[in-house]
Amino acid sequence: MDYTLKEMMAIVAAREIRNDDIVFCGTGISMLAAMAAKNINAPESVIFFETGAIDSKLEDLPLAVGDPRIMYQSSSNGGLLESFATMQNPFTGSHIVGILGAAQIDIYGNLNSTVIGDYHAPDVRFSGSGGACDVASFVSRSIIFMKQEKRKFKNKLDYLTSPGYLDGPEARKKAGLPEGGPVSVVTDMGMMAFDSESKKMFLKGYYPGITPEEILQNMEFEIDVTRAEEITPPSANELSLLREKCDPHRLIL
C-alpha cells in the first residue's frame, strides 16, 4: 500500500477519536485528522472550532480556523467567548478532545509554540498560544502532532505555552488546573502515550520501516520503548476516504 507520512499521521490520530467525542481542532493536519475521524471511524464525533462554530458541515476543507467554510451549516455560529466557555465548562469540557501542534514538547507533554531562545530577545518567534493554552488547560484529553526531531523533543522548553502534565503526577492539580492532559503524541515516525502513574511519555508504536532506536535518536530525552508495537498502516478504505472525502484538492496532504 502506497501512502505518505502525512496520510499515516492523519489516520493514526483519527483512530484515537471516538464517537461522542467533541473534537477541537486547529489548522492543517489537525483539521484533517478530525475530518478523517468523522469520515472513517467516528462518524458521530463532533467537530468544534475555537472561533465559535460547532458541528460545521465541512463540505470543503478549511485552511484556517477563521475560514468561512467552518460557518456553513454549523449548529451555531457564536464567537470566541462561547467556544472557550464550552471547554472550561466541566459538563462539556470533559467530552472534548483537543488536537494541538507545537514547536517543542517535553517528556510531560508540555508545549512551546511561542519562541526559541530568550522570550525577551527571541531567536525565532512563533505564532503564540492562540487558543492552544486554553484547550490544553481545560479539556480532558489532547492529541499532539509533532515532527520527530531532536530540537523539538526537548529536555527543557524555551517557553511553556500550553500545559501538559507540567512537572509530573499531581502537578496540574497543584497548579490549579482542571484534570486532563495529553494522551498521545503522533509524529512522522510513531506514536507516544503517557504513563498513567509517572505521567511521562513512552513509545506506544512505531511505523512500519522505523525502529524504536531511530525514534530515540530523534529526541533529546529518553523514553521507555518496551511497550512499543508496530502500528498498522492505513488501509485502502481509510486512504481513499481521507483522499477523496477530506482533502480532494490536496490542500494539506
Binding site: 470566541l80 472557550f84 472550561q88 492562540g130 488547560s137 481545560f138 502537578a171 497548579a175
Partner: peptide, 26 residues
C-alpha cells in the same frame, strides 16, 4: 491566550477591572 484576550475585552465592555478564568495556570 485567545480566551484571555476575549475576556479582557468583555471585562472592558462590562466596566469591571478584570475577569477570572482557569486557563494558563503553571
Amino acid at each position: 491566550t485567545n480566551y484571555q484576550m476575549t475576556l479582557r475585552f468583555l471585562a472592558g465592555s462590562m466596566g469591571v477591572p478584570f475577569l477570572p478564568s482557569r486557563t494558563s495556570l503553571g
